[in-house]
Write a protein that binds this DNA or RNA. Structure first.
Lengths: 199, 199
DNA sequence: CTGGCATGTCAACAGGTGTTGGCCTACGAT
DNA sequence: ATCGTAGGCCAACACCTGTTGACATGCCAG
């Protein structure tokens, strides 16, 4: 029972900075790296603490338990662009290029996939990203907004599948493709999932 | 140093049946279930042994160590059909329907994906399936056989992505689709990855 | 200056892990 | 009938896990 009140944003809206913010940030950074690299089980609290240069018990103090740390460390922001300003025929390409870009600049995504497969809290995270970040953007440009969840799921399935092939499992032919090749192959798929009338 | 010689096929080519074949089979069955349900780390040898109704040390005796057990328990057979006998325009549908069927009748596939994401031996397994089972069948019907690995990787990315969405992460809109709907959406994609000329 | 509290360390707990070696049992070839 | 050996169980090892509580320290408000 120490400081349970301000457990949300590290440097949040109006909360004045705490003396421990640097430590909290170090923990989160280390946790992100470990979760992404090793998955949930193998990313031990001790290893994370060691990376952050502090004692394991600090992790417990600030994040309650391992799952709390995981939740705090893996807030995902897909940084979805505004698609309503994009040429209708270029949506597929725009989306694929965006995902390639995001994926290679934020190792959290690979970590999220790794964890989503293993532990329920991770799966829920991934479902939430689909529901709250991907689907709404799709709905904004989708001919029939009601179909947005299904279309988002289809698009997501192709994106996650390619991410698995390239970044997680590293299947050679997929990992070896250049950005433009991936875009050339996947863009028409995404475009169809987005715009084609329901088959 | 007990019986290291016949460590291969449980009831192999010409090896006479061993008295322990039933036990070995029980271990493998239990291991498959646990690996598929829990992933590599959470599937403990003790739990597998309990399911199989034997002592944990038997697992070690017969399969050396946990990774050996994993390798033995997760031999994947995609049961790929002969595509050369299929109508050229129906290849996409044939493939998607086949994968849906295989996936829902063999929980090992979900297990393999779960493990491939976590431990290197699992990833290698998945790569081998792509290389040895998927790519050759693709090569047999692909206009330019040299492109088979890339095309197989593309097809596999969409298949694995949909499997992730439906069976692993269980994203509601994807998991709720009927077989025919999945086929209707994915078949054109696979058909294009298979047949369309390189973009 | 001083007391309170956040920050941080240390050491330990209780439980679970993969793995090992010793021992008993009973089958099957001789 | 006998004896080697494969099959099986038991108990333990050494280690690692998440988690906890007691104790030191130093900042900052009063």
């Amino acid at each position: 029972m120490a400081d349970r009140a301000p457990s949300d944003s590290p440097s949040g809206t109006l909360a004045r900075p705490r003396r421990s913010d640097a430590t909290r940030a170090a923990i989160l950074t280390a946790a992100r790296d470990r979760f992404a690299a090793d998955g949930y089980e193998r990313a031990t609290i001790r290893a994370i603490a060691r990376d952050a240069g502090i004692d394991p018990s600090m992790v417990m103090r600030y994040y309650g338990n391992k799952e709390g740390l995981f939740v705090a460390a893996t807030e995902i922001d897909l940084r979805m662009p505004d698609l309503t300003a994009v040429d209708r025929d270029g949506l597929g390409e725009r989306l694929v290029r965006h995902f390639l870009d995001v994926w290679e600049h934020d190792e959290r995504l690979t970590g999220m996939v790794r964890v989503a497969v293993t532990v329920e809290a991770g799966a829920e995270r991934l479902r939430a990203v689909f529901r709250d970040q991907l689907a709404p953007v799709i709905a904004a440009v989708c001919p029939v907004p009601d179909e947005a969840p299904v279309r988002a799921a289809l698009i997501g399935s192709q994106i996650i599948g390619m991410a698995m092939a390239r970044y997680v499992v590293r299947i050679p032919p997929a990992a070896g493709l250049g950005h433009d090749e991936v875009v050339a192959w996947l863009a028409p798929t995404v475009q169809r999932y987005l715009m084609a009338e329901r088959p």
